[in-house]
Amino acid sequence: MTTPTTSSTTTLSVRSRSRSRLIAIIVYTWRSCFPPKRWATVLLPCAGALLFGLLARAINSEPDVAFANVAAEGIFGLAMPIAGLVIGDSVLGAEIRAGTFHFTWLSPTPTWQIIFGRWCGGSIVAIITIAPAAAFAALIASSPVSAVPAFLAAAVGSIAYIAIFITIGCLTRRTAVWSLAFVFLVERLLGAALTGIAQLSPTWESRAAFTGLLDDVPTRLQRNGIPEGAAAIVRLLIVTVVALVLANWRMKHLRLSGAAD
């Protein structure tokens, strides 16, 4: 073994030619946060979304209406949140629990770059998995006009979820448990009753984005007090930004103990 000969001066002189930290974090997120088992777990809700497309074919009504009903409950209410949960937990919470996140944290990288890089890495995974799955489900349901709205709503909804689950990952070690509680207790239970919560909920807002982008939408899927279509997408983007800002603030106060603790 030899003593490293690189001096501080030499290192400083070449730092300007280094690869972007942000790109390094995104690449790391793809390579390390998604081992084969995680990919399989991400693909399960995608398969579920496709099955909901098949289910829509079995409903005895217009294909567009049938798919809208099934997608609102099955895809935006179940498959997309679960996919977002798995991805959001993978990019941060799982690494903190495994005790490997400090390799990233113990660097001079600004916390916003860590958060943003992880979110970008996770969002790209969502955009190539659950969003196309939602679009394919529309095609399977013989509702091609719903494919683009489903893709857009699933993409924006899942990246909002990932931002929220990253924030939860910064707040607690039991990311998966608290994320499930967020989806099923806060969004599904409270969000169904309280419009104020639904306005900030990726499930309700992505559903509203989807239905708002359709020409002919069942009236039962429309909910008063929630922006629809493009306005819902903007709302989801605002939720995403706020969640990332919260995560960035919280990351500065993380207490990183080892995997065994």
Binding site: P4, S18, F103
Partner: peptide
Amino acid sequence: RYIADLHRVADRGAPDTA
């Protein structure tokens, strides 16, 4: 290499040296 990138060590040979 990842750690080197986070620290903006541009010397591409640094990881191999380490």
